[in-house]
Design a binder for these strands. Structure first.
Length: 433
RNA sequence: GUGGACGUAGCUCAGUCGGUAGAGCUCAGGAUUGUGAUUCCUGCGGUCGAGGGUUCGAUCCCCUUCGUCCACCCCA
């Protein structure tokens, strides 16, 4: 019988890895909360139409990457390829955006049918942050600050670079788009294959083509800076001076064009050299038109999404994960003897310990085994202390405590001692403090 | 969707110019009958990714397929 395997590009996150995920999630949770953002949780599945209308019909995501299927009643549903659309839908649906501002964040799995490679999977996880109802550059700066603080908290600030750009207003983009098409059409034969294709679908993306010849043609192309509207320009300049004021370094990248249609004005991306080809670790921008586009009142908004797999990869490869994250157990309870009363005796002692030492990881050896093999298990668990309960301890109503590490000696400088069982919790409490 | 590399034990890999396979680690037991992380010994563990073809015989050669990795495309 053939074994059933996980779907391509959809990974199991194994026990060896979950501590790093939890550490990352916990760090983010504290940080977004300190910036006044509240968590929102949306369904993983939405109507297909939501993504078509928000992300854009001609984007790669909608055209060829969505997991779309028919519900039993004939509705077309889609596994969310990103979080913003669902977040806007949910906030709008529940009146969260009516004449008020909202600072929201969320996390969860997203789905895109792409060919997997390093840092890119078909089911991947994002942490997203969205701020609604504020149109000034101050909230853009605030949101970027949040990301910068996160890199500091994770110890990767030296390995990521902020790239930033302004896409201007929708009208300015449209005018520029036409000018660009007009110019490039004259060179159509000389463009690389991808760029030729994009000429109709998404001409702005030609700007970051990797073809040398295309780039040469682009050198004399119309410059977006000549098309950008005055308001967007001012917004951008104010944002940059706010970033200067808090010492956040950035690199203006005029070629930075996001792949989702709803972005306008501010766009930014945090990139790293340390992850190979998929170097974008966080990306976002302003999307003032989206709420209205989805049927709400015109509502300015700005947000970003981070790729959790990429961040985990980054802090792991750069070895920035604190040691405590991967520590296993604190105490391992060994039960070795023939007395029929041992299981109950050791279980009740362990339960008392767990009540007395909340937050400590206490493993009770189950399934028997020789003392030697149980010692090995205690060692493998990285336990700081072993509690040994055998026939002698049982009949004397006490327990033995053994230090598993030379740098954590017991009172009196011993490696092992026998004490009354009633004194065990107090002893371990003081040792593990 | 396109291209390249690769699938041998739970893990990391060796190997057979075609005669159905080995090491290290892990795990279990022992040397040390109540004491781990060192050492030594023993043992468990494989339809050599799957299917088909050539052959007396295929893990090895050929085809197909599935999967993994990396890159392109695109994106978090």
């Amino acid at each position: 019988m053939a074994k059933i395997q996980a779907i391509r590009g959809m990974n199991d996150i194994l026990p060896a890895d979950t501590p790093v995920w939890q550490y990352l999630e916990e760090t983010v949770r504290k940080l977004v909360s300190s910036y006044g953002f509240s968590e929102i949780r949306m369904p993983t599945v939405e109507k297909t139409e939501l993504f078509k209308r928000s992300i854009g019909e001609v984007t790669d995501i909608v055209e060829k990457e969505m997991y779309t299927f028919e519900d039993r009643n004939g509705d077309s549903l889609t596994l969310r390829p990103e979080g913003t659309a669902g977040c806007v839908r949910a906030a709008e649906e529940h009146g969260l955006l009516y004449n008020q501002i909202q600072r929201l964040w969320y996390t969860g799995p997203m789905f895109r049918h792409e060919r997997p490679q390093k840092g890119r999977y078909r089911q991947f996880h994002q942490i997203g942050v969205e701020a609604f109802g504020m149109n000034g550059p101050d909230i853009d700066a605030e949101v970027i600050c949040l990301t910068a603080r996160l890199w500091e908290a994770l110890g990767v600030a030296d390995s990521v670079e902020l790239q930033i750009n302004s896409l201007g207003s929708a009208a300015a983009r449209q005018t520029y788009r036409e000018a660009l098409i007009a110019y490039l059409s004259g060179y159509k034969d000389q463009l690389d294959e991808d760029s030729q294709r994009r000429l109709d679908s998404n001409p702005l993306r030609i700007l970051d083509s990797k073809s040398a010849q295309t780039q040469e043609i682009l050198n004399s192309a119309p410059d977006f800076q000549d098309f950008i509207d005055a308001e967007s320009r001012q917004h951008f300049n104010e944002l940059l001076s706010l970033l200067d004021a808090v010492g956040i370094k950035y690199k203006i990248n005029p070629r930075l064009v996001r792949g989702l249609d709803y972005y306008g004005k501010t766009v930014f991306e945090w990139v790293t050299e340390s992850l190979g080809s998929q170097g974008t670790v966080c990306a976002g921008g302003r999307y003032d038109g989206l709420v209205e586009q989805l049927g709400g009142k015109p509502t300015p908004a700005v947000g970003f999404a981070m790729g959790v797999e990429r961040l985990v990869l980054l802090i792991t490869t750069l070895a920035r994960v604190p040691d405590y994250v991967n520590a296993f157990s604190d105490v391992y309870v060994i039960v070795a003897g023939a007395n029929a009363g041992l299981p109950a005796y050791s279980l009740s002692i362990t339960e008392v310990l767990r009540k007395a030492l909340p937050g400590c990881r206490i493993v009770l050896n189950c399934g028997g085994g020789s003392l030697k093999s149980q010692m090995k298990k205690a060692d493998k668990e990285n336990a700081a202390y072993a509690v040994i309960i055998g026939d002698d301890e049982y009949s004397d109503k006490n327990v033995s405590v053994k230090s598993m590490r030379k740098d954590r000696l017991l009172p009196g400088g011993d490696m092992q001692m026998k004490i009354e069982k009633s004194a065990l919790a107090g002893l371990l409490q003081s040792l593990l403090k």
